[in-house]
Amino acid sequence: MKKSQQEAYKQDYAAAKKDGKPFFPYAIYKDSLIALLAIGIVITLAIVARVEIGEPVNPASSDFIPRPEWYFFFLFELLRIFKNQNVLTPVIMGTFIIPNILILLMIIWPFIDRGPERRIWKRPISMAVGTLVIAFMGYMTYLGATAPEGIGSGETIELEPQDEISTRGTELFIANGCGSCHMIKGVGAAGPGPNLTNEGGKNRGVQWQIDHLKNPQSKIPGSSMPAFASLPQQDLEVLGEYLNNLGTKYK
């Protein structure tokens, strides 16, 4: 905005104010009415939809679903999209680049859009950017809300041939909640972890898999996968063998 336009705005606003009404009581009464309504809605929801108590934390435990509050769904969805499947979808896009671009854009927006115009229909670019961001976040939140939370009870993964490793490995995979972040042959959640159906094809080696489970960050720096160091060594070995042959020996 040019200096003259700033002055013009100030004058115009002073005129509006001169012609206006006192904040107290005209604005205060509207404010209080809506605030009381909001508090009423909160109390009603608290009575109608009682809070639940979940399962106590067990860091060594099996089945869990890492599900955040709904207003972080869009971030988790970003992880599902960007999970290193190819060069176009590096994990860092979902974990760092896009969220930070959104935050930065929000903070510096008034210094980007500096025109004097305030009417909606005369600000097509602002409105387009705003609508795009809102639609994107809304859609991602919707996806997050409707995404499967993991492997349903009774569901299992059909792998051929069935031997000790493939049966026990599938059991461990399900029991340890891997399915809330990974998918094997269409079973489990589509993210935030990569699809493991063809994990064996990567030829990581059994030892790599075991080390990765014990400490994911040591093998994939910046991985957001929790560590499974508390699993018994025997189970780790089965899982390592299992993962290392997914898609090659076990299809």
């Binding site: 108590i53 934390v57 869990f64 909640g177």
Partner: peptide, 11 residues
């Protein structure tokens, strides 16, 4: 609880 704990670990 489990849900919150693991979500926070990931976050």
């Amino acid at each position: 609880d489990q849900k919150a704990y693991w979500a926070t670990v990931v976050a």
